[in-house]
Design a protein around this nucleic acid. Structure first.
Lengths: 187, 187
DNA sequence: AAACCACCTAAGCAATCGCTTAGTTTAATA
DNA sequence: TATTAAACTAAGCGATTGCTTAGGTGGTTT
């Protein structure tokens, strides 16, 4: 009955996500999104409603992409060794052309913080819970660990992963290795 | 020979810093700075040259303010116990009216990242080095530590402090306590 | 092949951005 | 007290912001 879209929303969001990842939310204009996504503003707004809408979808796309390394941990059944590998995978995941961009969700929370809209905030905050439950599952594969210890260590590991995201913006390769290795030294 | 300034640059920068801290760089407009600093745009530009200039001075003011807890660590001679106290002090320092704002320098690096101007970038990057040398000094007060171990542990602690800044945006009180307590079980 | 309608382009909307400038006020000097 | 120059106010600069709209285009359906 009418024309078909000349783009896949999935494809253009992927490109938008990368732009937000490199530049942050505020520093990315709709004109820049136009160019990067390869579609007109009209199409952007008819598909996603607003710049904010594009960002929300970008966050979701980011999480889906992150799922690839998440699933590899989930299937590994390697306990703490698997978690450590996840840290290294995460470090690799947040790198592009030797530039460390950090974690998109972490960057977003840093930037938007208090004045983010509720729907987005919920999506962002779920991130640490998802990571934590992943860690708990693997910690349970280890022997001699009470519930209480698992709780504390999973909290430690979760926040440590955030540290890795931020740390990768400041530190060089060897400092980051020291960081990860010390985290898993006596766990 | 002429009129005097009706404001102290030190005072208005303090206010600008708090605004940047709450809102981030991009989301803070010069009009907002006008209101918060209580002076006209003309005065802002004649004192600091540009919005960017106000931000650079805000970062410097932030570091000076942070020096209060830094000096208390430097004078404590308490080794690792002192470092741990610094972590708790830092957590308190980055809080305002029960709202955790994180570390201004960390937030700035997260937001600006790759496209920050060199002068600012240098100022931001020095941050971790300053913290690290502080930690090294205290680690040397402990027995049985080789240079190599001190290097690794100071890298671990430095990045962990970054994790605390970012973690405070995501996590609740008890998770943050678990985090800090577990850090100091590692070293 | 004709009708239909969603999709596209491109121009333009008001509002706000960072920054400047013209003109007035103020106080330290001669 | 007259002069002088820095600091002030307020209006406005061009550019860009997020978003909208009018009108031409093209693929699907009958």
């Amino acid at each position: 009955m009418a024309r078909n879209k000349q783009y896949k929303e999935e494809d253009v969001i992927q490109k938008a996500m990368n732009l937000f990842w490199r530049n942050g939310y505020e520093a990315t204009s709709v004109r820049m999104l136009e160019k990067e996504m390869g579609i007109n503003q009209f199409s952007i707004y008819s598909s996603f409603g607003s710049k904010h809408g594009v960002f929300v979808e970008s966050i979701k796309a980011y999480k889906r992409e992150l799922n690839t390394i998440r699933i590899s941990l989930q299937n590994s059944n390697n306990g703490i060794v698997g978690i450590k590998q996840f840290f290294y995978d995460f470090l690799e995941f947040t790198k592009e052309n030797e530039v460390r961009k950090g974690c998109l969700v972490c960057n977003a929370v840093s930037e938007l913080a208090t004045n983010a809209e509720p729907e987005l905030m919920v999506e962002l905050m779920k991130f640490t819970e998802e990571i934590k439950s992943l860690f708990i599952k693997n910690l349970k594969q280890e022997k001699n660990r009470t519930e209480e210890i698992i709780e504390k260590e999973s909290n430690f590991l979760t926040t440590s992963l955030l540290g890795l995201s931020l740390g990768s913006r400041f530190q060089g390769e060897s400092q980051l290795v020291d960081y990860i290795e010390t985290i898993f030294k006596r766990i």
